[in-house]
């Protein structure tokens, strides 16, 4: 079973010209990379240019892809019967994810935007989960402060909203 498969690397090039080399299979976590390779491009030495994503952000994305690819590959190689180990590995990966995404807001936005553009569903979900976590259990004004959302309603709109759905205002009930 082991060995035999050639190691294929791809290069991703950030908007500020930094190159990142990673295993093609790890890069395939990105739907955008998948599409590019599928149409027969991106394997050359020039790599795949990733627009709008800086090297700083892309390096984090690459870390995520490598980690998840390695974890999936390890799980693939394991004996399928060992349920306990599978669950433990999964939990470990989730813990790694949570640690990984514990970032300041600006970085989190950058990664979310990058993951969305690259079509890395798992990473988009992880970022969304982190934002949701920041919003959970908070009142509307607390959320606005936390995330810098500007309240742009006119007083008529506000009255209308209040009439439409009175329960949304109450914090605890």
């Amino acid at each position: 079973m082991a060995a035999g498969k050639p190691v294929v690397m791809v290069t991703l090039v950030s908007s500020d010209g930094q190159s990142f080399q990673l295993l093609e299979e790890a890069a395939l976590l990105s739907a955008m990379v998948r599409d590019t390779i599928q149409i027969g491009q991106g394997r050359g030495p020039a790599g795949i240019p990733i627009r709008n994503i800086t090297g700083q952000t892309l390096s984090m994305v690459v870390v995520y892809c490598n980690k998840h690819y390695t974890a999936a590959a390890a799980a693939d190689g394991d004996d399928a019967a060992d349920e306990e180990k599978k669950v433990a590995n999964k939990k470990q990966l989730r813990e790694w994810d949570e640690q990984f995404i514990n970032l300041e807001q600006d970085k989190l936005y950058d990664i979310l935007v990058a993951a969305n553009n690259l079509g890395i569903d798992g990473l988009v979900d992880l970022c969304c989960w982190r934002f949701a976590d920041m919003m959970k259990g908070k009142s509307a004004s607390e959320i606005r402060v936390k995330l810098g959302i500007r309240d742009d309603f006119t007083s008529e709109q506000r009255a209308q909203i209040e009439k439409d759905s009175p329960w949304v205002w109450s914090r605890t009930t």
Partner: peptide
């Protein structure tokens, strides 16, 4: 080329 997956590709 900074970051490269630590493991060889599995089967």
């Amino acid at each position: 080329g900074q970051i490269i997956s630590p493991d060889p590709p599995p089967c």
